[in-house]
């Protein structure tokens, strides 16, 4: 059931994109977001599309797989398209009752849709090519400068990676308890809202107990290994930029520059 979510799940293949430093990819995602919001004409979008598809091709993640990840945001997409379509003022093309469709509305909703699609594709590409551990590592090191103003960056990164690590465990646990209670005749599928809500109690109580138990076990295991936070802690695989990362930075900045130039000049 919950295993079917593709959005944000690591896609294990070997590719130059997978091998990039997570900080490079994080920066790239930020650049893409910036570029998409700067973009206001068709040429900017063509450039962004070319960039996104070039990275997808290099990442060896099938386009179909990435498009599947768009499904959960489909609702949001339709919602924003409809709003932009009907609520933009301008040259009226079609009018009925209180609704009117304008030329500007069509353009705006189209651009909005494209913007959203590339936004989701770009960010899911980040999680498809980067394991959660790499991602938190990258965040920790990339935001390390915040330590100067006393923000516990390491602790936040640790909380994040533990939370991510526990998602599949809890999904599995839910599955297990659900089956155990079904074997005792529990019914999670039929009945009205109240009946269904009540049916969740035999599932939620054991799930919470087990989550707390696991948390306590983990805390104890970390203490037993002398965990004391980030100070003086070394890494088994320290992040280091390589030639490919430096080239990527140059390309990404050039892309952002071109995007801004296209907006200003055209």
């Amino acid at each position: 059931m919950m295993r079917d979510i593709t959005l944000g799940q690591y896609y294990p293949v070997q590719s130059p994109i997978h091998k990039l430093d997570p900080r490079t990819k994080l920066f790239g995602t930020v650049i893409l977001i910036a570029a998409l919001f700067v973009a206001d004409n068709i040429f900017c979008y063509i450039l962004a599309a070319a960039a996104v598809f070039a990275v997808i091709a290099a990442s060896r993640v099938p386009v179909r797989h990435i498009l599947k990840g768009l499904k959960p945001v489909l609702f949001l997409l339709i919602f924003s398209v409809i709003f932009n379509l009907f609520l933009t003022d301008g040259k009226v093309l079609v009018q009925f009752w209180i609704f009117k469709i304008t030329r500007e509305g069509i353009l705006r909703s189209l651009l909005m849709a494209v913007r959203l699609i590339f936004l989701v594709m770009g960010t899911s590409l980040l999680t498809f090519t980067t394991t959660p551990n790499q991602l938190t590592d990258g965040l920790e090191k990339g935001l390390g400068f915040l330590k100067v103003i006393r923000i516990p960056v390491h602790e936040f990164a640790m909380i994040m990676s533990i939370a991510l690590r526990f998602i599949p465990i809890l999904v599995e646990e839910t599955d297990r308890i659900m089956k155990a209670q079904t074997a005792r005749g529990a019914d999670f599928e039929s009945g009205g809202l109240i009946k269904r809500g009540k049916a969740m109690i035999p599932l939620l109580v054991p799930l919470f107990i087990s989550a707390f138990r696991r948390a306590a076990d983990l805390a104890q295991a970390m203490e037993a290994r002398c965990y004391h936070g980030g100070d003086g802690r070394t890494k088994m695989k320290p992040l280091r930029y390589r030639a490919a990362d430096r080239i990527s930075y140059v390309v990404m900045l050039a892309f952002l520059g071109a995007d801004i130039a296209l907006r200003v000049l055209l």
Binding site: R176, I177, K179, A180, Q181, T182, A183, R184, G185, A186, I201, P202, V205, P206, I209, S210
Partner: peptide, 27 residues
């Protein structure tokens, strides 16, 4: 399922009621 009873591994993790008797009554 009421003819074929299945006790899972570590079945104690399915307990949820506030007392033993009510929990056994669930089935």
């Amino acid at each position: 399922r009421s003819h074929v009873g299945l006790v899972f591994q570590y079945p104690e993790y399915q307990l949820f009621e506030s007392d033993v008797l009510s929990d056994v009554c669930f089935g």
